[in-house]
Write a protein that binds this DNA or RNA. Structure first.
Lengths: 220, 220
DNA sequence: TAAAAAATTTAGACAATCCTAAAAATATTT
DNA sequence: AAATATTTTTAGGATTGTCTAAATTTTTTA
């Protein structure tokens, strides 16, 4: 088992997340932006991760994660999401408070720890934001989900996932009643700005902007 | 609040633990040995910790922890011991498995996390080895305890603490039935090698060496 | 398609932390 | 108290990861 430093883990995770968005090729600038660092630092690190065969790196062209790299990244993601569940379910954190702490906890090295934690939490399948938790086998089982912005009038879905873990966004969701599991019905779509009028749990109707609807996913 | 790096925290904690043993002055070599590093590295770090006013450092003479340093160290110790309780109570670790993981977890930076963890665990006063957990106020409340080796024949005590967190020692304790809370009665003391014959919980009688009895503490 | 703009990499420095080897200070022994 | 031994510090170098500035490559634009 190849071991990665704290920093290498963070780079690999960023590359994983970027490649997860369907991009075929990830650029140096994207990584730098995601990690709040400079492109020059990214270039240095790409060489190292390439040497460790976590990525395929072609100078000036871009980066692609290898199977080994993906497997390592998924282990980190698994830890991150399990810790998020712990923080929310057991320690009563709000879903907008967990990210930074989980960002630290995900680097703790102990298989026993993480398997026991998984057991303790009752083998959860999703984290507090609705993201799937990779299994101990390193597999990510996804449920098919649709962006709220892609629904049409009278479509119904159940809120399954929010992308964008920012505090402001999550607090906004809390405020208007957008929680994992609520039933959402699209009442109207304003073609001018692509804002949506939606009904939540048959109770209340609110209007949300395109920016918000892009970050919310539902299952049908 | 002055912030310390992961490494600085480890040095400070080592200095705290060494000074806790009643030493007035801690030497470079002792620290190096405790941290499995070289004296030269220790000298470098002492300069830094001295600049941050965590210690009083007199070249060639030795080191003394300041009030500020002690307060920082106690926060780390608090985190370490709370995590140990979590691992044993909630995740069903054995007491000989917790040290290394807690050694990592103690560096996670989040007051909210540690206060919520404390709450979740029911505000425990002692860790799985019987060591007192410093309060959120940074105070360490101790119970008076006596080394098992200092008891005399027919004395009775309750096992409250084991020093020496080594795996081998803790597994030995498990094997012979020495757990926190058991009642110990001194049956005989062999003057030749200072080994003890003790009765545990009125049930069984075993013989333990001086080395073992030195690491076991009881309350009366 | 040639020039300009943007992205990327390299070169060289810096900070933290570690090390080895040598120098300096302290402690011990005779 | 001088010689020896031990401890501690300094000097200088390695490593990891960061950065800025300059050089290089790719992309865009005119």
């Amino acid at each position: 088992m190849i071991s990665l430093s704290y920093t290498e883990e963070n780079y690999l995770k960023a590359i994983y997340h970027l490649s997860y968005l369907g991009k075929e090729c990830i650029t140096t600038n994207e990584i730098a932006e995601m990690l709040n660092t400079k492109p020059a630092s990214v270039s240095d690190m790409l060489k190292k991760l390439s040497q460790k065969e976590m990525i395929n790196y072609v100078k000036y062209y871009g980066v692609e994660i290898t199977d080994q790299g993906k497997s390592c990244a998924l282990k980190i993601v698994r830890k991150h999401r399990l810790w998020e569940v712990f923080l929310v379910e057991k320690l009563k954190f709000n879903w907008d408070e967990v990210h930074d702490v989980a960002e630290e906890l995900e680097h703790i090295q102990s298989n026993l720890l993480i398997e026991r934690l998984d057991h303790f939490l009752g083998f959860p399948k999703y984290d507090p934001h609705g993201d799937p938790i990779p299994g101990a086998d390193g597999l990510l089982r996804e449920k098919p989900q649709i962006g709220l912005c892609d629904l049409t009038i009278n479509d119904i879905g159940f809120l399954s996932n929010v992308k964008e873990a920012g505090v402001a966004f999550l607090q906004y969701c809390d405020k208007v009643g957008l929680k994992i599991g609520v039933k959402i019905k699209v009442i109207d779509k304003v073609s001018f700005d692509n804002s949506l009028e939606i009904e939540i749990d048959n109770i209340k109707t609110i209007s949300i902007s395109k920016e918000v609807s892009k970050n919310i996913f539902v299952t049908r």
